[in-house]
Each structure stands twice: as C-alpha cells, then as structure tokens.
Amino acid sequence: MRRIALGAALALGLAGCAATQQAADTTVAAAKAQVNPTLSTQDATFMTEATRDGLAEVAMARLAEKYGRSPAVKRFARHMIEDHGRANQEMLALARRKDITPPETMGVAHQQTHDRLANLRGAAFDRAYVRTMLEDHQDDVREFQAQVRDGTDPEVKAFAERYLPVLQEHAQQAQRLARR
C-alpha cells in the first residue's frame, strides 16, 4: 500500500515538474516573442519545445546505443540521432535568424525520463526506450501538426511541415518495435 501511495506521489510530483517546465517555456517564449515582435508566442513556444524534444531524442538514443540489447532498437536509435541531430541543427540556424536563444537543455521532464532509462539495461531498457519513443513521437506529431495548422511565422511553419513526415515515420517505427 505504501508503494502505491509513494508511486502516486511521485507521479504527481513529476506531472507538476512537467507542468512547471511547460509554463516556464511558455513564459520564456513570450519574452522571446517580445524581443522579436514578428515571432508569435505560439511560434516561439513551438521552437522552444521542439528544441527540448530534439535534444532529448538524441540523448536518449545515445543511451539506446549503449544500453540496448536489440539490434533493431540500436538501428532505430542511430536513425534518431541522425534525423533529430539534423533537425536540431536546422532549428538552431532558424533560431539565430529569428534572433532568439533556444534552450540548451532537454528540460526537467525529459531529463527525468533520461535518468530513468539510464538505470536500465538489456531487454528492460529496450522495452522502456521504445515505449518512451512511441509516446514522445506521438506527442511530437500532435505539436508539429498544430504548428503546421496554426503557426504564423512562415519559416517556423515550414520547419514543422518539413519534419512532420519524419516524426510520423519515427512514431510508426516505434510502434512496430513495440509490437515485437
């Protein structure tokens, strides 16, 4: 019973950290949008969240290369490093053009997931990593779809349009891995 209560308290605490991080990102994005008035708060928030997500995808994929057991999971991780690494570089260039400073870290929620994965090995790592990638990419697809639909800055919107199919493919790959 104490384990259940402790688990529930931990889950609530993590949810609170994620909500706090998201609120902080939105506040920072609003401030960045004020520095660059041509960039809406929504566009700046998208850039911030996409940067954090991209940094997290690469960091967790590096863990998969190191701690994963399945060759398929390791191939998927290599694909994540290449695709998200390329997107991260493009986002940094876009941020420079928009005169905003993107976040340098993956944020609290992603860091907690990363740390949890770093304590796993072999098949247990593979299962947790694939589940995390599936959930993350499903969230990313929704965020990128919203940006494509509602974004106002043409360059930020074009970035989302360019990488949405990549993220959809990643979600499909993760889903196939999860079924194995």
Score class of each variant (00 low, 15 high):
Ala8Gln: 00
Ala8Thr: 09
Leu10Ala: 12
Ala11Asn: 07
Ala19Val: 09
Thr20Met: 10
Ala23Pro: 07
Lys32Gln: 15
Pro37Cys: 12
Thr41Lys: 11
Gln42Ser: 11
Met47Ile: 12
Glu49Arg: 14
Ala50Tyr: 04
Thr51Asp: 01
Arg52Cys: 03
Asp53Ser: 15
Asp53Asn: 15
Val58Tyr: 05
Ala59Cys: 08
Met60Asn: 11
Arg62Thr: 02
Gly68Arg: 03
Gly68Glu: 04
Gly68Asp: 06
Gly68Phe: 04
Ser70Thr: 02
Ala72Trp: 02
His79Ser: 08
Met80Asn: 09
Glu82Trp: 14
Asn88Val: 10
Gln89Cys: 06
Arg97Trp: 00
Arg97His: 12
Asp99Pro: 00
Thr101Pro: 01
Thr101Trp: 07
Thr101Gln: 10
Pro103Ile: 10
Glu104Ala: 11
Thr105Phe: 00
Gln112Ile: 11
Thr113His: 14
Thr113Asp: 15
His114Gly: 04
His114Ala: 03
His114Tyr: 14
Asp115Pro: 13
Ala123Val: 13
Phe125Asp: 03
Phe125Ser: 05
Ala128Arg: 05
Tyr129Glu: 01
Val141Ser: 04
Arg142Tyr: 09
Phe144Lys: 09
Ala146Gly: 13
Gln147Pro: 02
Arg149Cys: 04
Asp150Lys: 08
Gly151Ala: 03
Ala158Pro: 02
Ala160Glu: 01
Tyr163Leu: 05
Val166Ser: 02
Gln168Ser: 05
Glu169Ser: 12
Gln173Lys: 13
Arg176Ile: 04
Arg176Lys: 11
Arg179Gly: 08
